[in-house]
Amino acid sequence: MSGHLGILRAVIGREFLRFVHQRERFIAALVRPLVWLLVFAAGFRAALGLSIIPPYQTYITYETYIVPGLCGMILLFNGMQSSLSLVYDREMGSMRLLLTSPFPRWWLLFSRLLGSTAISILQVYTFLAVAAGFGITMPPLGYVAALPALALAGLMLGALGLVLSSFIRQLENFAGVMNFVIFPMFFLSSALYPLWKMAESSELLHDICAANPFTHAVELIRFALYLQMNLPALGWVSLSVALLMGAAVWGYDPARGLMKRKT
């Protein structure tokens, strides 16, 4: 057990050191959602009227509505960024060296996933603090209640990144794959507009959005920020974490996945 905890501390510590030395990564993670919050929201406010929908008890501003979705955006982009660094580590040989250690492969990947998720949560709370400075606030206890939801959503999106990194052979191919994953997941979700609004335009798009795991991650965060539990979202996100983590372990299995293709 001490050995497992030691490797966990080492991997998480390495992730935080990398984060500290890459300050532009922290700034980029904040600039992207702040642009949506302060610029795009101003233009969409009039076009996207919002009704009273759970978990809200009254009418809200559009800026308030998109905050949980922008929290999800930070988790999504950071999960993909962490996967990009994983592809780099694999090409440089450090990831291959780590995977040859005597510790279980799933524990090594899970340690890496926990490290990236912890950094994502730190970025989310920084964003929430900046948003509060502009007058966009949530219930005080909601910030605490959102922590488990953010952790679970971060694990899901980070596990998705692990799956992608296990099937990408070259670093140059990762940017294209990210574009085919990040943007459809983000825009085909409830991050920027409620699902009932999407149904008014197209039932098919509504169904796609409803089936998108990112939608459930956003709704889990949204309800948690208002001290409510969304059980369907919790179930779907938890199932997605289990399936994606299993797929990542399979992808990094030397007998069937990554290492077999590299030899």
Rank of each mutant, 00 (worst) to 15 (best):
T100F: 08
M185V: 06
Q22D: 14
V20C: 07
V67T: 10
Y56Q: 07
G43I: 13
F127H: 03
G161S: 08
L76A: 11
L98N: 08
V218G: 01
E63V: 01
I168V: 15
S166V: 02
P213A: 04
A153M: 05
S190M: 00
I182P: 02
G135N: 11
F103G: 02
L5C: 03
F183C: 00
E15D: 15
L162I: 06
Q228V: 04
L75S: 07
R25V: 14
Y59T: 08
R32A: 15
A191W: 03
H206Y: 15
Y226L: 13
C209Q: 00
I12S: 09
P102R: 09
A46W: 10
F134A: 09
F167T: 10
D207P: 00
W196T: 11
G49E: 12
L8Y: 11
A145W: 07
L38S: 06
L195K: 04
L86I: 05
Q228G: 05
V11W: 05
L239G: 14
A129T: 12
I52N: 07
S240E: 07
W36Y: 14
V20S: 13
F223A: 11
G235Q: 14
A217M: 00
T137D: 03
R18W: 12
E203H: 08
H206P: 00
R23D: 02
A191I: 03
A146M: 06
I182R: 03
